[in-house]
Simulated scan of single mutants.
Amino acid sequence: MWLILCNLGDPSALWAYQGLKARGLSPLELISAEELMYSPRWRYHLSSRGASFELDLPSHRRLHSEDVQGVLNRLGMLPTEHLLAASPVDRDYAAQELGAFIASWLQSLPGRVINRPSALALAGRYRHPSEWTWLASRAGLPVVSFHQSSEDNGALRGQPGPALLGYQGLLVLEGELFGPPVPATIREGSIQLATLARTSLLGLSFANNGVEPWVFTGATPLPDLRPGGPALLDHLARQLRAGTEVQS
């Protein structure tokens, strides 16, 4: 069994679900964050010898850990509407505990998981724009310079220079680049950035500053997958089929 985990209203997850089914990935389950949070029964066992789980979803589907072969993880925020009746202090505490539980469960999933959680996010490693800029520079990509000081009230300000024109998005999935044609230096730098970021699936954004046609402006572990087209789906299906042979 393969899983796609996402939030409601994620068109990329639905697109990937339909595309992967067409490529013969079966059984394939699309599961929302709401289904996970409102499940009537969880059994999750974690020890030094490994982890196992059994989960009943509101739709009456039952998931077993031994059946999972691969996962596309696109979980963002967890719904907390069911905690609104609690006091603010208790509600915040419960939300943190639920987030920690889901992160632990995601980390323990068997097979190929794209992307595993980090300490700061459920679907990979989110970073401050300054860290993305630093990593992109290390990867050899042209970057937009900026500065930040205590007088900026936390806001990032770009250095004076040409206005950014247009927008281009690229996707990196396990060493392969998807999107429009790019110069070799941008291709190599984008793949290197995903490696430095230790992120299986990474979306990168670029713009033209009037001097450089490809200037890095940001990255996310939760990109829109659709610009990757059929080639991305083909590679994604191969990665998920790799099962326990490859770990993210």
Rank of each mutant, 00 (worst) to 15 (best):
V71L: 03
P129V: 14
V246D: 02
L120K: 00
G111C: 10
V68K: 00
P213V: 07
H147Q: 10
L204H: 07
L240P: 02
R23W: 03
S87I: 03
S118P: 08
L232T: 09
E29S: 05
G111D: 01
G166N: 06
E34F: 05
R127N: 02
G243H: 04
L78M: 10
S59I: 03
T220D: 10
A219W: 02
S130Q: 14
C6Y: 00
G229S: 06
P221I: 05
W134I: 12
A184P: 07
T244P: 03
Q18V: 07
D56M: 05
L78K: 01
L72H: 12
S87L: 13
S205V: 11
L20I: 03
E245L: 12
T217W: 00
L98F: 07
N7L: 07
W134R: 15
A155Y: 08
L156P: 00
L72K: 09
Y93I: 12
C6D: 01
R138I: 09
L72C: 09
M77V: 08
S145A: 15
A237S: 13
L78G: 08
G154T: 11
T195A: 11
G154C: 11
S248Y: 03
L222F: 02
N209G: 12
G124P: 03
R43E: 15
M77F: 11
D234M: 01
H82I: 05
I4W: 04
L165A: 11
A163R: 15
G70F: 06
Y93D: 11
S145T: 05
G154A: 08
T185F: 14
E151C: 03
L141G: 08
H235M: 01
H147Y: 08
W2Y: 15
V211R: 09
L164A: 13
K21I: 06
G228E: 04
F53S: 08
R23L: 13
E245K: 01
P58C: 07
G243D: 11
L225Y: 03
Q18E: 13
L222A: 05
V246T: 09
L14N: 02
P162S: 07
A13D: 11
I4H: 01
P79E: 15
L135W: 01
D224A: 15
G210Y: 03
R127Q: 12
T244Y: 00
L83K: 13
R187L: 09
N73P: 15
L63E: 07
V172N: 01
E245H: 01
V71G: 14
H128M: 11
L46D: 14
R74W: 04
V215F: 02
H60A: 10
A16C: 12
A95L: 05
W214F: 15
G24N: 10
